[in-house]
Amino acid sequence: MDVNEFQTLVARLTGEIAGTPLDTRLEARLNADFGPGSDLYDALLAACRTGVAEGWLCSREGGGIRYGRVLKASDATHGFSVDVVDMNDLAGPHHSHPNGEIDLIMPLTPGAQFDGHPAGWCVYEPGSAHHPTVSQGRALVLYLLPQGAIHFTPAA
Rank of each mutant, 00 (worst) to 15 (best):
L71Q: 03
C58R: 04
T24V: 09
G68D: 03
G111R: 03
R49M: 02
A43V: 04
W56Q: 06
A91K: 12
H151Y: 01
G137R: 02
G15L: 06
L45G: 09
C122S: 15
S81R: 02
H130D: 11
D89C: 07
A139C: 02
T50K: 12
T153V: 09
V84M: 01
G148M: 02
P154M: 02
L30H: 01
H131R: 08
F152W: 12
R29N: 02
G137K: 05
Y124V: 00
Q113I: 05
D75P: 05
A129I: 03
V85Q: 02
K72M: 08
D83C: 09
G37V: 13
S74T: 12
F114R: 04
L108Q: 15
A32N: 13
A47H: 01
I17M: 06
W56T: 05
T20S: 13
D75A: 14
V52F: 11
G55P: 10
V82D: 00
S96D: 04
M87R: 10
L22F: 13
R138P: 04
G100S: 07
S59V: 10
D33K: 14
L108G: 03
G92D: 15
A32P: 00
R49K: 14
V134N: 08
A76V: 09
P107K: 07
L104E: 08
G148F: 01
V134K: 07
S128F: 11
D75Y: 01
G37Y: 09
L45W: 10
N4Y: 08
T133A: 04
I17L: 12
